[in-house]
């Protein structure tokens, strides 16, 4: 009996997403249109891709509060490169590298200085945002090459191009977390860091890699954001870290580490996306949207905790 319950509850995020989808299709005639679904995908792609990296970080028992700032930094330096070299490709590479670099910085401070991730990334949240404003002089980067718009707004057949990017990222992230040594160690470190150290795993090195991957994906998300806006905004991504963490948590990630899946996070990000899209379609006051999303986060975690408690006893 308890086992059946746990199966239902394990798939709860997926069931919730499906239910939300069905309900919105029924109550709003605009929901199930190509335009709207494309728009949901475009809107959630940025948060979604960042959340994939955050999944690794959270599974390892860490947290990264600086992702919103890194998104803006990558976007600004990436677009500045594009403007000065007129090369979209080079700009993308620079943006991605910038994100990776900041991830490495976070990881190195966490591993070498042994400062808790919350503190390190709270610090870099401010540092990176400040540097972004310094570099850009507080002004958005404009005059981007037109082709750059394809990343965020282009389509392949009926599908938005970002969907292709997102699916590719999901596959890679899922593979890394569930099939590679890095992924295995990520779970081991998050589950019991001391035991991982005592098993002879060079935990510090792997932590740097984990935060670097999170930075890389954030850099990519930063480039998508600039492509959608066609500017490099130094103020982009403020409070995105909260949405990203929420997506991971709704998808079953545990802030104490050792738990979380890429698929869960994907579902979590879409639940958040649909809630906000659905509220828009139904004309719910944006102020109330925040209330709803906040309540959903708490509800999701409460159900997860209840599931674990029942399973434990």
């Amino acid at each position: 009996m308890p086992r059946e319950n746990s199966v239902v509850q394990r798939f709860l995020p997926f069931i919730s997403l499906a239910a939300l989808f069905v309900i919105l299709s029924i109550v709003s005639p605009y929901f199930l249109t190509t335009t709207n679904i494309s728009s949901v995908i475009r809107q959630t792609a940025v948060i979604n891709i960042m959340a994939l990296g955050m999944t690794l970080v959270i599974v390892s028992g860490g947290i990264d509060l600086s992702v919103g700032s890194i998104l803006a930094f990558s976007g600004v330096v990436g677009t500045m490169t594009m403007v000065s070299t007129d090369s979209v490709m080079l700009g993308m590479v620079v943006g991605g590298l910038a994100g990776t670099l900041w991830g490495c910085v976070n990881g190195l401070m966490i591993a070498r200085l042994r400062i808790p991730p919350f503190i390190v990334t709270l610090g870099t949240l401010g540092i990176v945002r400040g540097l972004t404003l310094v570099i850009s002089g507080g002004l958005p980067v404009v005059g981007l090459p037109k082709e750059h718009g394809f990343l965020g707004e282009g389509t392949i057949g009926p599908a938005p191009f970002v969907l292709v990017v997102l699916v590719a990222c999901v596959f890679v992230a899922h593979f890394v977390l569930h099939s590679t040594k890095l992924g295995r160690y990520t779970y081991a470190i998050g589950s019991n860091e001391a035991a991982a150290i005592y098993a002879g795993i060079p935990v510090g090195r792997f932590k740097v890699a984990i935060y670097a991957i999170c930075g890389l994906l954030t850099g990519l998300a930063g480039m998508i954001e600039t492509s959608r806006l066609m500017t490099g905004q130094p103020t982009a991504g403020v409070t995105y870290e909260l949405q990203v963490i929420a997506a991971v948590v709704i998808g079953g990630g545990s802030l104490t580490g050792g738990e979380g899946t890429v698929i869960g996070t994907l579902i979590g990000a879409f639940i958040m996306g649909l809630l906000s899209n659905g509220s828009d379609l139904l004309g719910i006051n944006p102020y109330w949207q925040q209330v709803i999303i906040g309540a959903v986060i708490i509800l999701a975690v409460a159900l997860d905790v209840a599931r674990k408690r029942r399973f434990a006893s």
Binding site: S191, N192, A194, A195, I197
Partner: peptide, 9 residues
């Protein structure tokens, strides 16, 4: 519990 095993795995 503390250093020998990741008991949740």
């Amino acid at each position: 519990q503390r250093t020998g095993l990741a008991v949740n795995l």
